[in-house]
């Protein structure tokens, strides 16, 4: 359903291409609904700027600021000229009453965030480092679209640094684990991708480790 947002024009702000909308670590007191243009969400990890997400018109960013003023966990940079509606806790009520659709959208966004965070957390609860790395692949495969469900093989265009990050370990440690998997022929490592030969094998492996922990 298209939202009529003309009544919120007074909250409109524009950003030029490459402008930072908000910056990691800065106190967050506003959130945005993108009306036009794209926004890149990035985080600087070590010496690398990582693109976490690219948001399109209709999407919301900075939503954690609605309920509390915590430091931003990532930066938002305008990829194009961006027009967005800017809200804060004070005018949020106005927004809600004027357009409950947006509130509902936020609610759905939160359910998704909770699920994603829990899924990430599940990886970190595994004590076994191999199981952690395997579980990263499982998590990635769960959100992968277009993979043939009848095939056991999965291809991931993911870097070792990324996997190390999700697995909560140093890239060196992660490389060790991946090399071990490679010698076992469970995976193949290429410069631009990692191929998991049998995702179900990883599924069983992680499942057994997780059960061992609960018992």
């Amino acid at each position: 359903m298209a939202l009529d947002l003309s009544m919120f024009d007074r909250f409109a702000v524009t950003f030029k291409k490459n402008d930072i909308m908000f910056c990691e670590h800065e106190p967050g007191d506003t959130f945005y609904l993108i009306q036009s243009g794209r926004v890149q969400i990035v985080k600087i990890m070590g010496e690398v700027e990582k693109i976490i997400d690219i948001l399109n018109p209709g999407e919301i960013l900075g939503e954690m600021a609605i309920l509390e003023e915590a430091p931003r966990s990532a930066s938002a940079i305008a990829l194009d000229q961006v027009r967005a509606l800017e809200f804060n806790r004070e005018n949020f009520e106005v927004l809600m009453q004027g357009n409950p659709q947006i509130a509902l959208k936020l609610l759905k966004l939160f359910t998704k965030r909770i699920y994603d965070q829990k899924r990430r957390f599940m990886i970190l609860t595994l004590d076994d480092v191999q199981a952690r790395v395997a579980d990263v692949f499982l998590m990635l495969s769960e959100t992968q679209t277009g993979a043939d469900p009848n095939k056991d093989e999965r291809v991931f265009n993911t870097t070792i640094d990324d996997i190390a990050h999700w697995a909560g370990m140093s890239p060196d440690k992660c490389r060790q684990v991946l090399n071990h998997f490679a010698t076992q022929r469970r995976i193949e490592i290429y410069p631009d991708k990692i191929v998991v030969k049998n995702i179900n094998d990883f599924q069983r492996f992680v499942g057994s480790r997780r059960k061992a922990k609960v018992e």
Binding site: M64, I66, L67, E68, T111, I114, Q117, F121
Partner: peptide, 11 residues
Amino acid sequence: LKVFSNQLRRI
């Protein structure tokens, strides 16, 4: 929203 955001913070 409040309940969910609390859960998110906790995680």
